[in-house]
């Protein structure tokens, strides 16, 4: 089983990765291997097993609601590729349908 170019391109869009044709082709090929893994696991998968998300059994890890010092503005913006005064700056936003509320 392998993936169509269109499906691979859809994934690249979902992952916000600009990929060239060569990269797309190689990844489509590798995706087939992941599918093989998945199919092999079908042999041991059992619906009655609880999925394991954490190896530790700890629950309820909290902090108290106490304000702590933040970074300075300069520190916060220190690595910004583009900024305007006290803000990070980005080019215009074209709504994609999956974003935060506009």
């Amino acid at each position: 089983m392998s993936l169509s170019r269109e499906e691979t391109a859809r994934l690249a869009d979902l992952a916000r990765l600009s990929l060239n044709d060569d990269e797309l082709a190689r990844i489509a090929h590798d995706l087939a291997e992941i599918i093989d893994y998945m199919e092999k696991l079908a042999g041991i998968d059992r619906a009655d097993v609880e999925p394991l998300s954490h190896v530790l059994n700890t629950v309820n890890v909290y902090r108290d609601d106490r304000a702590e010092p933040s970074l300075s503005q300069e520190e916060a913006l220190a690595n910004a590729p583009d900024r305007q005064g006290e803000f990070f700056r980005v080019p215009r936003i074209i709504d994609t349908g999956e974003g935060s509320e506009a």
């Binding site: 304000a67 503005q73 006290e86 803000f87």
Partner: peptide, 16 residues
């Protein structure tokens, strides 16, 4: 995180 939630603070002054 421990950053404050005050409304109207200087931009990017309550971040970590």
């Amino acid at each position: 995180c421990g950053c404050k939630t005050d409304f109207g603070a200087r931009p990017n002054s309550q971040t970590c």
